[in-house]
Amino acid sequence: MRRTPQALIIALAAGAASLLGTQASFAQDGDDEIEVDPEEGTGEGGEEPEIEIEEPPEGDLEADTASLEAESSAADEAVKVDAKVGDYKVSWQDIVTVIRKPFLKIRRWDLMPMLATTMNDNMVRHVSAGAQLSYYLTDVLSVGVEGQYYSKSFREPFDLVARQARRLPTINQYNFSGALNFHYVPVYGKFAILDKNIVTWETYFTAGLGITQSEVVPRDPRFPGFTNLLITPNVGASMRFFLFKWMTVNVGIRDYLFVDKFEPVNRDAMTNATAEDAKENADSAFINNVMFQLGISFWLPPTFEYTTFR
């Protein structure tokens, strides 16, 4: 009941808007898409023109994003209402069409437990568990360290080659690795899932330098294997999907490059019988160990504040 006068004002505004034309709606016919988050509204049609936006709960990225979208909707409402005033026109140029980045990384720590598996070795599959800790110097550049522990399993061709071609493959397994890495974020974007939920994501490239310990798997178990500590540059690309202010999901591919030392072909009781001799006469080969990685990042501090204007 008490809202009726306000409703009248709105009604007048609607009528005036219908008379004044639809310049505002024409302005929408540009190239920009308009994103709408159904979680956030602007009130019923008869409400007062100003929009009340509740502060999103701490650590809720989705609510934060919705809040930003609602602000855009508020501006949209302002265009319709203020058109009747005549002395102050709000144009679409005044509306922020590019919202603030929904996730800030600068001066935050990224702790990422991860799992990884070999992509390019058809003899032995390594699965690794590890973690990566990075610090973002800026919103697009970070420096960090990583460590992984590997577990191996032989794949079908390992047995087939031995059985069908009567040849024993020369195999090295990887035990652990560590690296100092730099990450750079050149690509960011957003996508809609089933035309409903909008998810933001980014792509980052990684380059680093570290070490890997490999270990020879002896073809003949009578002879001992040996280990190698290998200098290991790495390069890679990953995608990060933002779920909350404090958590993201990462998938990526990383190429670990090193020159590995393999068991020499000639090895018997008289030749290369000891680990030292075998290592001395090892065959070297350049290896690309390409791994698919999946990780969940936990961000510290778990929230952030914007320090610039919209």
Partner: peptide
């Protein structure tokens, strides 16, 4: 405009926090 907008307020209080965008597509 009046009929459309003024008819709503009697029910509006109860639905004040109801989003008008619930059934809208994510991107227009």
């Amino acid at each position: 405009g009046t009929i459309a907008l003024a008819a709503a307020p009697s029910d509006a209080a109860a639905e004040r926090r109801t989003s008008g965008l619930e059934d809208q597509p994510a991107v227009r």
